[in-house]
Write a protein that binds this DNA or RNA. Structure first.
Lengths: 107, 107
DNA sequence: TTCATATGTAATAATTTTATTACATATATA
DNA sequence: TATATATGTAATAAAATTATTACATATGAA
């Protein structure tokens, strides 16, 4: 289960979930783990684009990837969901606000 | 209290909360409503930029604005928080995924 | 009347995010 | 060996988001 969140972590998690493809990725991985190429087909997007989205989800700690060798011997990368449950209310957001960083753009 | 969320609404709400200034705005308005110029000073940002952020929060149904005439007779616009509590977990996100729209970029 | 403060928005610039294209490597199967 | 599938990433383009600048209007107080 994904950890409790501090300010910048909450922001990162919300950003990670703020995209339709990434929402759909969570929906798919909730049912069953998938390997990258298969996931790309299910979403009808290219692998490079998918990697970008997977990276953001993984950076936020919402999914994790692992390499495996398939029965037939091919290298596969599987992604699976990390369970999470965030009570997104004004208390949590206000608490996050206290420790949030407004980062200089461009670095 | 803000309503329960469907797919595109959840996305809109998450997007609205995916910015440090907007997180801070929620934090401030949780304590007490504020008028625009005052809020801009508290955040150390310009009003035009603040308007942009307020608009996104209001579009998501997280805050609401109202005009008032101050005691001294000046036109003021106050914003206040709308309470919300979203159980952000994989069930909710998966449910949202079913009804989410991947919109054509550029319209 | 002048200064300070409030409102609001249009036009533009800067930056980040998203998406595409073009590579390269490896293994299984026909 | 050729074809299909898997991996991964660098370079670039396109689009959206964020931020700035420059306006304009109105009221209260000095």
């Amino acid at each position: 289960m994904k950890d409790i969140l501090f300010g910048d972590e909450l922001l990162k998690t919300l950003e990670a979930l703020s995209n339709p493809y990434r929402i759909k990725i969570i929906g798919i991985l909730k049912q069953e783990r998938q390997y990258v190429s298969q996931l790309a087909r299910m979403l009808s997007i290219s692998r490079p684009l998918l990697y970008l989205h997977l990276q953001k989800l993984e950076d936020a700690g919402l999914i994790k990837g692992q390499h495996e060798i398939s029965d037939s011997g091919k290298a596969m990368k599987y992604y699976e969901l990390i369970s999470f449950n965030i009570p997104l209310n004004e208390e949590l957001v206000a608490k996050a606000a206290d420790s949030i960083t407004i980062k200089n753009r461009k670095d």
